[in-house]
Design a binder for these strands. Structure first.
Lengths: 124, 124
DNA sequence: ACGATAATTAACAATTTGGCTAATTATTAG
DNA sequence: CTAATAATTAGCCAAATTGTTAATTATCGT
């Protein structure tokens, strides 16, 4: 089961333009047109990037009260939590890695759980 | 200037198969063939995924001492640091966001730095 | 030496991505 | 009402991505 949430988050972040948007919104909310100017790409291109970011939940759309034409975008902090959690889990790999190293120096080549009962690739 | 390091890291992580590899290596180093079996894709496909992960620095190749045919892959923890740092920076958005909110309730619509001197889109 | 094994590279097909221009929708300003 | 503005959607194209099978390289076991 592929983690669909983490997947969309990482896909959304794996683009320089979209990260530029994220970085810009870090300081303050911005209208779509402002983001277009910052990224120096066409408005339609930015619109699609914003859609992807919106769908990933990383940013949210907001209306301004005096002009219904403009759309204000702002960062959605909660959406980063899953990635943060996953990263922390990955970073906690030391435990497992140390076990493996221990087994290694003890002369047992690291092996998958029950793949082969006879260690063919054993240390001489 | 697009952050090339962060870019390759996120592109590498933005694929379910590659994340499956990362998750697998969290517990212990694995040979290429084992990873192929886990992901149930062809060996060549996995080989290319491993290449991308290797080039991103997220994993490292290692030789086993009794069989020169097998390649052992292990996690490279340092390579996650940049992403972790960037994520922390993004998460620290609260300061800026609060400033914007303050300006907002004070009646000044949030605007880019020196875009327009006259607040055209002012609150009525 | 010879066949099997581990992994990679080569070559190709299908899909996705990201960008552009043109068109569309909605709203504002004169 | 009409022109201008803000943003999105539609349609098209080039480049990149991912997967497959076939071929290649290197090494091991007998």
């Amino acid at each position: 089961m592929p983690d669909i949430r983490l997947d969309t988050t990482l896909i959304a972040l794996a683009d320089p333009t979209r990260r530029l948007v994220i970085n810009a919104l870090r300081k303050q909310p911005r209208r779509a047109g402002e983001l277009v100017a910052m990224a120096s790409i066409s408005a339609p291109a930015m619109s699609r990037h914003l859609k992807i970011l919106r769908q990933s939940g990383l940013i949210a759309e907001e209306d301004v009260e005096n002009d219904a034409r403009v759309r204000l975008y702002r960062l959605q902090p909660e959406a980063f939590a899953d990635l943060q959690t996953w990263l922390d889990e990955v970073q906690s790999f030391w435990a497992g890695q140390l076990d493996a190293f221990k087994a290694h120096v003890e002369g047992k080549t690291v092996r998958p759980k029950g793949k082969r009962t006879k260690p063919k690739d054993q240390l001489k």
